[in-house]
Design a protein around this nucleic acid. Structure first.
Length: 360
DNA sequence: CCCGGAATAT
DNA sequence: CATATTCCGG
């Protein structure tokens, strides 16, 4: 939430930005999950992981807590100042004519615009089953690796080499990269048809996280963005978005060319070849779909030099700068033999022009 | 079950 | 609009 107050003289600014609070699952979910792990030795580390996450969250909340008095003070100041100002004008009426221009809304006024109150329920007990959402909590360093996926043992002995999904680490400092996003907030609209599982016996109360109460009188100067961080009442939330980091994509592309191009490679093969832990078939499939779509669209509209940047990227070398040319230094691995249909069809578009290359 | 593609959601 | 997830028919 960000508070910002600007009043003529004593304009101070308070900006506490506390994102939502996150925990991947309800506590009972976690306990259940851990209790089902076979490998005893891993239970502890799993739990530690969660503990760590929670501690991190607590730290954020703590900052929040410290700033709250300031917020209150600011609000009080503002209110007080405005009230005084209001009083100054109380006596003298200018006549009913111009009243509309003066937005003083000290008191009654009622209906008008009470827009700020985001009060739904004033439950204050967080903690009952705080459910938030998970972030691949990679702190800072590139090396820290944690695979979020819970129930994976190990597949294939070769495993050591890779598990990295670093969505968060972005090298160029340019962007403001928010560590967390606000929770989707109050979505009043109901999900569509399914979700029919309305009635659960043991309906765990998933309670929206606390709500601050602030003076209803707070004037317009102070804008309050809702505290947010609501739980998702739905037990089955949508899968966390897999973010395809450049590394991940690189692997993808590599695997792809080993398999003979985007058109012939199949998701499962790709996934197996990538050997990235936690990557699911569907995710690869989806990525592949996007990839295929992107490839097949140049010639139609005259205008576009399409952006193939996502394939052209390379990280280890810092070489290509200008996009104008076509920096082709692709290290081609094994021969690209085509799979399946070797037929030479001169039909419409070139069958397989794999390899991302930009013609024309 | 796997795949491709469309419909949706973010 | 781009990208990721889910649904659906083959």
């Amino acid at each position: 939430m960000g508070f910002e107050k600007k009043m003529g003289e004593n304009s101070r600014q308070l900006n506490l930005d506390v994102g939502s609070i996150f925990v991947p699952k309800t506590i009972s979910d976690i306990l259940t999950e851990v209790s089902m792990m076979h490998d005893f030795s891993k239970k502890s580390s799993k739990l530690d992981f969660y503990v760590h996450s929670l501690e991190e969250e607590m730290r954020k909340v703590d900052a929040f807590k410290r700033e709250l008095p300031h917020c209150m003070q600011l609000l009080r100041d503002a209110i007080e100042t405005l009230k005084k100002e209001s009083l100054r004008w109380k006596g003298r009426e200018m006549g009913p004519v111009m009243e509309e221009f003066i937005p003083l809304k000290g008191d009654s006024e009622g209906g008008g615009r009470a827009k700020l109150s985001t009060d739904f329920s004033e439950k204050k007990n967080w903690m009952s089953s705080v459910q938030l959402w998970s972030t691949p909590v990679h702190y800072e360093n590139q090396d820290s690796v944690l695979s979020l996926r819970s129930r994976h043992q190990e597949e294939e002995g070769s495993g050591i080499d890779s598990q990295f999904q670093g969505c968060n680490n972005i090298k160029n400092s340019g962007g403001a990269f928010l560590p967390f996003k606000k929770a989707p907030g109050l979505s009043i609209k109901e999900q569509k048809r399914d979700s029919a599982s309305a009635v659960n016996g043991g309906l765990s109360l998933s309670i929206p996280v606390a709500e601050l109460e602030l003076e209803s009188e707070s004037p317009d100067l102070i804008s309050v963005k809702e505290p947010s961080a609501f739980l998702r009442p739905q037990l089955q939330q949508r899968k966390q978005r897999r973010c395809w980091s450049p590394e991940l994509h690189k692997r993808f592309v590599d695997a792809l060319q080993h398999l003979g191009g985007a058109q012939t490679a199949t998701p499962k093969q790709i996934r197996e070849l990538m050997k990235v832990d936690g990557l699911t078939n569907d995710e690869v499939k989806s990525h592949l779909q996007k990839y295929r779509l992107h490839i097949r669209k140049l010639p139609s509209t005259s205008g576009g030099t399409r952006d193939f940047s996502w394939v052209a990227q390379e990280l280890p070398n810092k070489q290509m700068v200008a996009h104008s040319g076509s920096p082709q230094d692709h290290l081609n691995l094994g021969g690209s033999a085509k799979r399946g249909s070797g037929s030479a069809i001169g039909g419409d578009s070139m069958e397989e022009d794999e390899d991302d290359k930009c013609e024309s």
